[in-house]
Design a protein around this nucleic acid. Sequence first.
DNA 1: TTTTATTACTTGTATTTAGTAAGTAAATAA
DNA 2: TTATTTACTTACTAAATACAAGTAATAAAA
Lengths: 112, 112
Amino acid sequence: MAEAAKTSGCKEDYELCDHFINAFQIIGKKWNGLIISSLCDTHYMRFKELAKCISACSDRVLVARLRELEDEGIVKREVDQETGIISYGLTPKGADLKPVFDQVHTWADKWV
Amino acid sequence: MAEAAKTSGCKEDYELCDHFINAFQIIGKKWNGLIISSLCDTHYMRFKELAKCISACSDRVLVARLRELEDEGIVKREVDQETGIISYGLTPKGADLKPVFDQVHTWADKWV
DNA sequence: TTTTATTACTTGTATTTAGTAAGTAAATAA
DNA sequence: TTATTTACTTACTAAATACAAGTAATAAAA
């Protein structure tokens, strides 16, 4: 089998793609999936609304995650100049994750 | 806006679906995405191969994750009766996550 | 106008989870 | 016989997260 593996590119040689690994470092980080999918569904939300929606996540971590996702260019934080109200939404990069969540939903409905 | 929110089901009332939350508790847990997608691509792997492939994950955690995924019915651990060789693969429930990973790949190729 | 509440955070501490490194029993190869 | 590989386990350290309380700024209620 060692010979076969060497010549046929079997599982011994399998490598995950870097893009994919990096993507999962973001999507797979605790709470990020729920944060992004919530913003995907609602278009935008204030901090309190998001926190209520992902209630098991502490404020402390939610703040940190939102910052990180902003730095990744997935979330955008906006301040209304008139009211001063802060809202969180997705950038095109973030919104483009919707098909991922749709597939998760499909899977979840079938198996969870 | 409070009135409007109450009557129109706007973001204040938004709730994530339980199935979806549970699904993300599994898929979103550190390393699980990479573990499952590796097994998705290769069909089955021995522990050492998997560990090499997800090299940033410690053996200790990989062992724990595989057990958890087995308990979730996503991963199956098989022992060859003849050789005693242990291999890890996916159950139908696990294999059914492929479309999710495909979408992550599509997104990663575009944005990461 | 003083009090109360809300928002979007921050800070300190406890607990949980993960990383590092070394070890082990069983099987296989040299 | 000795060395190596495999699939783990164990002890310890470091990092991430949870819990709880606090805060400055603004808004709403008494």
